[in-house]
C-alpha cells in the first residue's frame, strides 16, 4: 500500500513549513494521505510519522481519535446523515431509515459496488436546515426522501461532478507567498513583537 507520492511529499513539506513544529501538521498530512488513497493506509501513516518525526504508533493514536479518518477502505461516497437533536425532531431518523432501504445497507456499511458508505452522524452544523446530510462532506440541506433518491441516482450516474471522491476535502489550499510570509513563530522566539515594543519604547 501506498506511501505518499513525491508530489504529496512536496506538499506535505509545504504544509509542515506553516507550523512552528512539524508535528502540528500531523492532522493536515493525514488528510492529505486520505485524499491520496481514499483511506489511511498503514504505510502512509508510517510515512507521515517519518516526515513529522514521531512513531507510527503516535500517528495512529492521533488518527484513530478523529472520526473522519478511516483505517479501512470506504465507499467512493460517504453519505453522512445527521440524526442529532435538531434533525431528529424533524425527521432525521426517518431519513436515515429511508437511506438504509434505498442503499440496502446499515450505517457503517458499504454498498457491494463500493459506491456508498452510510453513516449515522452527529450534528453537522446545519441545524436550521434539517433534515440534512453530507456526501463527502458536501451539504444537502432540507432533504426529503425523494430528494435523497434523486441524489443517489445522480451520484450513480455521475451527475454530481461537484462532489469529489471520498478523501478530498477543500480543493483550494492556502499558499503563503515567500515574500509575504511573516514566518513561523516558535516557542523559542521570545522577542517582543516589533509593533508591541515600538509604542512601549515611545512611551519611555
Amino acid at each position: 500500500m501506498a506511501r505518499l507520492t513525491n508530489d504529496n511529499v512536496e506538499l506535505a513539506r509545504e504544509i509542515m513549513s506553516l507550523y512552528p513544529r512539524p508535528k502540528s501538521a500531523l492532522i493536515s498530512l493525514l488528510h492529505l494521505a486520505q485524499e491520496q488513497d481514499g483511506h489511511l493506509t498503514d504505510s502512509a501513516m508510517a510515512h507521515i510519522g517519518e516526515l513529522v518525526g514521531v512513531s507510527s504508533a503516535e500517528v495512529l493514536g492521533t488518527a484513530s481519535f478523529y472520526e473522519m479518518f478511516k483505517m479501512e477502505p470506504v465507499g467512493r461516497y460517504m453519505v453522512n446523515i445527521c440524526t442529532n437533536i435538531s434533525c431528529q425532531l424533524v425527521g432525521g431518523e426517518e431519513l436515515l431509515a429511508h437511506a438504509e432501504s434505498t442503499l440496502g445497507i446499515r450505517p457503517g456499511q458499504t454498498t457491494p459496488d463500493g459506491l456508498f458508505t452510510l453513516e449515522d452522524v452527529e450534528c453537522i452544523a446545519a441545524c436550521t436546515e434539517a433534515p440534512c446530510l453530507q456526501v463527502n462532506y458536501r451539504y444537502e440541506h432540507r432533504i426529503s426522501n425523494e430528494g435523497f433518491d434523486q441524489l443517489v441516482n445522480d451520484l450513480r450516474t455521475g451527475n454530481r461532478s461537484d462532489i469529489p471522491d471520498h478523501g478530498v476535502l477543500a480543493q483550494i489550499r492556502q499558499h503563503i507567498p515567500e515574500d509575504r510570509r511573516a514566518g513561523s513563530v516558535t516557542p523559542e522566539d521570545t522577542a517582543v513583537p516589533a509593533w508591541i515594543s515600538a509604542p512601549e519604547e515611545a512611551e519611555k
Binding site: 501513516m45 512513531s55 504508533a57 500517528v59 495512529l60 493514536g61 484513530s64 481519535f65 478523529y66
Partner: peptide, 15 residues
C-alpha cells in the same frame, strides 16, 4: 504503544 481510538472504545495498542 499508544492510546488508539476514542472514548469508550479507547484502547492501548501498538501500530
Amino acid at each position: 504503544i499508544h492510546f488508539i481510538h476514542r472514548g469508550n472504545n479507547t484502547e492501548v495498542n501498538t501500530f
